[in-house]
Amino acid sequence: MKTQLGRSTWEFSKVRILSSAVAVGPLEGQGPLANDFDIIHEDLYIGQDTWEKAERKLFEEALDLSIKKAGLTKDQINLMIAGDLLNQIISASFTATYSQIPYLGVYGACSTSMEALALSAALIEGDFADYIVSGCSSHNSTAEKQYRYPTEYGGQKPPYAQWTVTGSGVAIVGKGLVGPRVKYATIGKIVDMGLKDPFDMGSAMAPAAVDTIVQHFKDTGRNPEDYDLIVTGDLASVGYPIAKKLLLEQGYDMSTVYNDCGLMIYSPNQEVFAGGSGCASSAVVTYGHIMKKLNQKEFNKVLVVATGALLSPISYQQGESIPCIAHAVAIENEED
């Protein structure tokens, strides 16, 4: 069977998400999706002595729980595909030290969640593995420290800034009899519209999300109405309306099915500026909230479009614009 559709979509016939688990920090636990998260920590340090260890702890907890939920043990998992936002993706790699599962590290900034899931699904489809654990993490304070200023620094942020989600989302991908299917993955290309403000990721990433969504519709012949929900990863209140507008200009009316993980994870009265960001934004919403709704058959077809801004503190200080990318994965229940 041909598994490539159009220019950049992969079609899968035997890949399922067998289980998923999510661990989050305090602010996410106070948000509207709190009931969908498996582990909620009241303490941003998660009982550790550094922010970096705290992020790793979240990752380890989500990993352990997802494996347990699938009824598997670590030595039955053939591969771990994971990433995060920190330099040299230390959270994922140190978690792989802990898990002792054969490991491939990936980096796609905030698009890492779906990049890892797409690769996992492809390797399962190609019979290279029976079970793959796929996930990512981010932590508000480690991200602030690396990309912006010290956490206690009193600089003023503009209203279009975003709040990096503290959490980790992990899924077990494999062949099996239960769980929603991974049906399609559309791999995005870099879109750089020349935006340079590192606080304004929403405007920078919206065109990349649109590019991938349009490519997905073209490759699969689907339309927005074919989905119960289409979510972008972290465009938040600035990028979300822009993406909606651009899609409408291209003839896709998204008004009834479209939402954004960065808007879903926090309530409007939480002080998070324009909304959530970070690889955990799409990961915890997908692997917590959306997976729950899929398993309850409340949703049957969902397209998750994780959006990533591939900048570094050096690249923007050198005046370079922000290259952006988005990867889409369609997750759906089998039709009866």
């Binding site: 003023q156 279009y160 519209m193 020349g194 935006l195 304004d200 929403g202 822009i242």
Partner: peptide, 22 residues
Amino acid sequence: EKRRQYQQMAMKMRPKPPVLIN
């Protein structure tokens, strides 16, 4: 040209910091 148009549109759509109040 496409980039310039997009940047203009994005600038228009994103919320301005409330300079006077700030």
